[in-house]
């Protein structure tokens, strides 16, 4: 219930804010990235905390959270997978990769919509979503697992075993 930002994280955030000497508002994205990296997603309290930190109205932070596909408003799995959906990767089999990943992790994507693109496995270990072009079109199909990039993915079991 209570939302608390650990002091080392707050220190990291304060340091990031110094990169924007002209306008604190510019630090909205880096502050949100730091919060999401720590908490896994951006909850309402995090929006209010970021707004207070940057001397903004919460709506000025929320409108950013809701616009960018890189920010999540609900908890992902322990390992969050983003599979590239765009043309070159699709030609290289990214839809098949998505199907295989869902099958192996037991994720059901049938409830996924544009505004709620992430599906989570029942055990909370994995979550998955399609991402638009990850800029590695020559080595498709590619995906990101948390911050790790994987290219020319063919061995799904091998990939997932790194995150067990």
């Amino acid at each position: 219930m209570s939302f608390a930002v650990p002091s080392d994280l707050e220190k990291e955030i304060d340091d990031r804010i110094t990169h924007y000497p002209v306008s604190k508002r510019s630090a909205v994205l880096p502050v949100l990235h730091a919060l999401q990296h720590h908490f896994g997603y951006i909850e309402e309290a995090a929006v209010e905390w970021a707004a207070a930190k940057l001397e903004l109205e919460p709506i000025q932070v929320l409108e950013v959270v809701t616009f960018y596909p890189g920010f999540r408003q609900s908890a992902p799995g322990k390992c969050h997978i983003r599979v590239c959906r765009t043309l070159s990767c699709a030609m290289a089999g990214s839809y098949e990769l998505m199907d295989k990943l869902c099958e192996k992790t037991g994720i059901d994507r049938s409830g996924v919509t544009h505004h709620d693109p992430i599906a989570v496995s029942a055990d909370g270990k994995f979550s998955i979503e399609f991402a638009e072009c990850l800029a590695s079109c020559g080595t498709g199909p590619v995906c990101l697992v948390n911050d790790d990039f994987h290219e020319a993915v063919s061995d799904v079991d091998g990939l997932l075993s790194q995150y067990q």
Partner: peptide, 27 residues
């Protein structure tokens, strides 16, 4: 020089959208 990370929006490649994003707004 500072590194500023976007958040997954193609429109930020448009230079004025990028600037809005760097100002902390919707791009």
């Amino acid at each position: 020089i500072y590194v500023h990370r976007g958040a997954g929006a193609y429109i930020c490649g448009e230079e004025t959208g990028l600037i809005e994003s760097l100002e902390g707004k919707r791009p």
